[in-house]
């Protein structure tokens, strides 16, 4: 890729003042570095991935409201986590976290256990028990 071909598309990098660094060729065929504001094919992929996460969060929220799952799953999705990541943060086995997704089990959890989840999600126990708070 030539220096002049380094893409300068609009992207959300701008908001954080970050620029992407490319290695490209100058007019004499020597490698140099050049900053880029973004590239559309990449931006679209990222946007789609973000939308996918938002859908997962929405979906989890609905299921909490229908009493099909507990707020633990909702907050897990909200923090872009999966079962493996959440289980390593709270320090429980995966099957235990999964069990805490059951509303009946979640409603009987001890304060100590709830506090662990609340700490990981950086919220209060009240917020954990009621997503709308």
């Amino acid at each position: 890729m030539k220096k002049s071909d380094v893409p300068q598309d609009k992207s959300n990098l701008e908001s954080a003042n970050i620029k992407d660094m490319y290695y490209a060729l100058d007019d004499n065929g020597n490698y140099i570095t050049e900053l880029s504001t973004g590239w559309n094919p990449k931006t679209i992929a990222l946007d789609n991935a973000i939308k996918e996460i938002e859908e997962r969060v929405e979906n989890a929220k609905k299921r909490v409201l229908n009493n099909e799952t507990s707020p633990v799953e909702y907050y897990m999705e909200l923090h872009k986590m999966d079962l493996t990541i959440l289980s390593s943060y709270v320090g429980f086995w995966k099957w235990r976290v999964k069990r805490h997704f059951k509303p009946s089990v979640f409603n009987k959890l001890k304060t100590k256990t709830l506090q662990k989840y609340a700490d990981v999600f950086d919220i209060t126990i009240k917020q954990l028990q009621d997503m709308n708070q």
Binding site: M1, V6, I18, D20, M21, Y22, Y23, A24, N30, Y31, W39, P41, K42, I44, A45, L46, N48, A49, E52
Partner: peptide
Amino acid sequence: HYLGQIVRMQEEIGTGGGGFRYIYAAFLQ
């Protein structure tokens, strides 16, 4: 989603473009 993941890994911040192939070309030069 899977295709998007390939492109993201290839062009993510830190690759220098083209899945590190340009950095490697610079190294060979």
